[in-house]
């Protein structure tokens, strides 16, 4: 049971840290005018398909759009 208690406290701590981190991030990007101009950076971000399955020679979205407009 002691192990379960430790795990439970760890899970609660992770969730609390996530909320605190989120609040801090929000304060940093929204409440501080100077910081609001900078692009928002997250600690964890989802990757794009092109980053996982990139084959040399593939066009990026921007390149493909440019190619279409030629």
């Amino acid at each position: 049971m002691v192990q379960a208690e430790i795990t439970w406290w760890a899970i609660v701590a992770v969730l609390l840290l996530a909320f605190i981190f989120r609040a801090f991030e929000r304060y940093y990007t929204e409440c501080r005018p100077a910081a609001g101009d900078k692009p928002r950076r997250s600690l964890f971000e989802e990757g794009e398909e092109g980053q996982m399955l990139y084959v040399p020679g593939d066009l990026s979205d921007e390149d493909a759009e440019l190619f279409d407009n030629l």
């Binding site: 208690e5 439970w8 899970i11 969730l15």
Partner: peptide
Amino acid sequence: ADGRDLRLTFLCAAFFSAAISAGAWIF
């Protein structure tokens, strides 16, 4: 709000809610 995948969102929310309510059993 962050635009995360809805399935991942449900999984995470269920995990933390279940884990916290499991405190009733553990304690």
